[in-house]
Amino acid sequence: MSERNVGPASPESGPFWEATRERRLVLQWCTACEEPIQYPRSFCPRCQASGSSLEWRDASGLGVVYAIVVEHKPEAMGEESPYAVALVDLEEGVRLMTNIVGPDALSATISTGVRVTWEPLEDGRNLPLFEVSAAKQV
């Protein structure tokens, strides 16, 4: 695919993007309520904890498709087509928008198990994408 339009990191999400340089998927967690926070914030919107109550943890990179669409008319955007855009629910309990890529991408459906894969960006960061995992989940 052609160049990605990836915005600059917000102050709160810097560690997420730094970890992608090592192809690590990390999530912000609130240690007070033991829940992940997505997108990253300066405080926990559940319990309002902040500061040292927030930390970054590695994610498993495994998830399940929550919703998925196939882009059929991308000429206006100058992209290859068709391609799949999905919302993926990670094992940890957060939802990410992503592209499903790889040979099985267009056969993926809701509830298909997926795992993270990476696409290099020009600035050294990597963009997390997902591919259908061999071990299908329910």
Binding site: M1, R4, N5, V6, G7, P8, A9, S10, S13, Y39, V69, E71, K73, P74, A76, M77, E79, Y83, V85, L96, M97, T98, N99, L127
Partner: peptide, 12 residues
């Protein structure tokens, strides 16, 4: 947030 978490994936 859209620029970080959605735009990269070209959802039209």
């Amino acid at each position: 947030p859209a620029a970080e978490w959605e735009w990269p994936y070209r959802l039209r």
